[in-house]
Design a protein around this nucleic acid. Structure first.
Lengths: 130, 130
DNA sequence: GCCTTTGTTCTATTAGTTATAGAACAAAGG
DNA sequence: CCTTTGTTCTATAACTAATAGAACAAAGGC
C-alpha cells in the first residue's frame, strides 16, 4: 500500500498515517490479514522517528482495526465489527456537514459529495469476485 | 443562541465554540446579521478566559463566517459565499466516511446518516416562510 | 541454543498548542 | 467624556507532537 506523509502539514504525522490506513481499509486496498510494514521500516521510508509510527499503529490497535504482535507485526483485523455508528462519529459528521452548509453549499450538493466519496471506496477493489 | 462548553472534553474549548457557531449558522438559528455575545460576556458565562473566546471568534472571522468590529461586535455574515467545497473539506470528509466504512458500516447506512444530519439542519428553521 | 526481527517500554529533550492572566491600546457610539 | 468593544502585548503552566537513545521481551529462523 502507498502511504504519503507531509511533514509540513498541519495534521500530525501519526494522524496522517492512521488516516491513510483507515482509508486503505475502507477502499479495500487493505483487507483482513493484510500486514503493515514494521514500524522501523516505515519510519525509515519517511525519514521520521519510529515512535511516531508506533503511535499511529497503537491508535489503530485501540480502534480495533489492526492487531499487533511481536514478529507477526501489524495485521489488519476483521472489518465488520461495529453495528452502529458511535456517537462521536455522528458529532464529527454533524460539524463537518454543518461547515459545508454554513458556507452556502446546498444540502443536495453536500450529500452528493458524500455519495461520490463513498462510491470511490467500493469502486475499484483490488480483488474482483466475478 | 445556546452554546455549551465541556471543559473536560478532548476537543479544545475554542474549537467547541467555533463548531457550535458553525452548526447554528447551518441550522438557521444564526442568520446573516445575527450578533454573537461580546467575547468578555461569553467568557464570563462559561467561566473561561476571554482570550479563548477571542480565538474562536478570530477563527470564524478567518473562515469568513462572521465580521468583527469594535462596538458592533461579532456579526454573522452572508451564507452563500462559496460555490464549491474546498479540497481540505473533501479530504476531511473522505477520512471521516472511511472511518465508518472501515468499521464495517454499509455505505448505504453511512449515506443515510449523512442525509439525516443534513435534514436536521433545514428541518426546523427558527423563521418559517409559509 | 543463538540470533534476528519485531513490538514494547523507559527516560529525556525540543518545539508547538491550549488555556489562563493581566495590562494596555484603539475605535466607535451614547 | 466615558463606556463598550475588539485588538495586541507579554507571561506562564500544562499538555501534545516529534525526536532520540537505550533497553526489554517474545516469536521465529537457522
Amino acid at each position: 500500500m502507498i502511504i504519503n506523509v507531509d511533514l509540513a502539514a498541519e495534521v500530525p504525522i501519526y494522524q496522517q498515517i492512521r488516516d491513510q490506513v483507515v482509508e486503505a481499509i475502507a477502499h479495500g486496498t487493505l483487507t483482513e490479514g493484510s500486514t503493515l510494514p514494521p514500524i522501523r521500516t516505515l519510519a525509515a521510508d519517511f525519514g521520521i522517528n519510529f515512535h511516531t509510527v508506533n503511535k499511529a499503529y497503537d491508535l489503530l490497535r485501540q480502534e480495533g482495526l489492526i492487531r499487533l504482535s511481536r514478529k507477526t507485526g501489524a495485521v489488519v483485523t476483521a472489518a465488520a465489527t461495529d453495528q452502529y455508528l458511535p456517537s462521536d462519529w455522528t458529532a464529527k459528521a454533524r460539524t463537518l456537514l454543518a461547515e459545508a452548509v454554513a458556507r452556502g453549499i446546498p444540502a443536495d450538493d453536500v450529500l452528493h459529495a458524500c455519495r461520490t466519496l463513498l462510491d470511490s471506496f467500493s469502486a475499484t477493489q483490488q480483488e474482483d469476485k466475478p
